[in-house]
Simulated assay, not measured.
Amino acid sequence: MGIDLSVIWFVIIVFATLMYIVMDGFDLGIGILFPFIRDKTSRDVMVNSVAPVWDGNETWLVLGGAALFGAFPLAYAIIIDALTLPLSLMLAGLIFRGVAFEFRFQATPSHRPFWDIAFQAGSILATFCQGVVVGAVVSGFKVTGRQFSGGQLDWLTSFNLFCGLGLVITYALLGATWLVMKSEDPLQQQMRVLTSRLLLALLVIFAIISIRTPLEHPQIAERWFSTPNLYYLLPVPICVLLFSGLLWRTVTRPESSHALPFICTLGLVFLGFSGLGISIWPNIIPPDISLWNAAAPLQSQGFMLVGALFILPFILMYSFWSYYVFRGKVRHGEGYH
């Protein structure tokens, strides 16, 4: 049996996407949480908690996009064609968020409120558009031959918009639990209260998507509810309940570990992402284009794999080192200047 390069590249793209969701998710979440925190000192602590690492987190987005382009060019072409507007808005949001991130530290007191609003708006816009893209991928695309044959506004559906809202809540929960770990009272206590509310909202989102998706897509319903798949996949919803219960317990007990809420949230994100992968596998463009049908020639995949296996350890090492160096609590007056 030979090595299936398409599966290897699919794993690399999934890994890069998950790393981006986790690592850029909580700093986008901090921007989403800005409207709930009015105190200038607390806002500075929030931004300083991610200042040393936020731009490096986006490395994973670049890696995932480049890998999709090189390893699965058909999938890349269809997604870009079908989702031109939400992807463009996402990039605009990321750019605006990045500019506001830097400028708010240098702005005069009279201008800082403008950059705070820009930081909030860019974070919310980028996150919402990412959720819309996820919903559109789950819903599938109209493809004729090897080309997208739908309209430019096919993504504008209630399900996709709801997925956008769901990702905003997910990233906000990541940001809140990150700040439980990185901040001290009174900001930490505010984040504990927000975490409990966001967790309830996220569970409602999970429930609605879990009910609606199988109803609208029979192939997904068969994947989850036919036997023996039902028994194999049952641990996913059970683990969601377990992580949710543990997260609720840790944020309502101040004496508990400050890091555990963030770890529990990472578990929920991983389970949600796994559910997405289970639902669409082995298609990379639902409902009919598998990852093998969309794959580049084996020679191209093999050539790129050499470079990927060389660069991935370096990305992981400098990411680990940056988080290790800037570990611990962030206090007022410390951090980015």
Results as ranks from 00 to 15, higher is better:
42 S>H: 10
42 S>T: 03
43 R>G: 03
44 D>V: 02
44 D>N: 09
44 D>M: 04
45 V>Q: 04
45 V>K: 02
46 M>S: 02
46 M>C: 03
49 S>Y: 04
51 A>S: 11
52 P>T: 01
53 V>D: 04
53 V>N: 06
53 V>R: 04
56 G>E: 08
56 G>L: 10
56 G>F: 10
57 N>S: 12
57 N>E: 09
57 N>T: 10
58 E>I: 09
58 E>G: 10
58 E>P: 08
58 E>K: 14
59 T>Y: 09
59 T>I: 11
59 T>D: 12
59 T>G: 06
60 W>Q: 13
60 W>S: 13
62 V>A: 10
63 L>F: 14
63 L>S: 04
65 G>H: 13
66 A>C: 15
67 A>M: 13
68 L>W: 12
69 F>E: 09
70 G>A: 15
73 P>D: 13
73 P>S: 13
74 L>Q: 15
75 A>E: 04
75 A>D: 08
78 I>N: 12
82 A>D: 07
82 A>C: 09
82 A>W: 09
82 A>S: 14
82 A>Q: 09
84 T>P: 01
88 S>E: 04
89 L>C: 13
89 L>Y: 12
90 M>L: 14
94 L>S: 07
95 I>R: 08
95 I>N: 07
96 F>D: 05
97 R>A: 08
99 V>Y: 12
99 V>S: 05
103 F>L: 15
107 A>F: 03
107 A>T: 08
108 T>Y: 05
109 P>Y: 08
110 S>Y: 02
110 S>A: 11
111 H>A: 15
111 H>Q: 15
112 R>N: 02
114 F>K: 10
114 F>D: 02
119 F>A: 06
119 F>M: 08
121 A>I: 14
123 S>D: 02
125 L>Q: 05
127 T>R: 03
128 F>E: 03
128 F>V: 03
131 G>C: 13
133 V>T: 12
134 V>A: 15
134 V>I: 15
136 A>K: 04
137 V>R: 03
138 V>F: 08
140 G>M: 02
140 G>E: 00
140 G>I: 02
142 K>I: 00
145 G>T: 00
149 S>C: 00
150 G>M: 01
151 G>N: 00
152 Q>I: 00
153 L>S: 00
154 D>A: 00
160 N>T: 00
164 G>S: 07
165 L>C: 07
165 L>H: 02
166 G>H: 06
171 Y>A: 12
172 A>C: 13
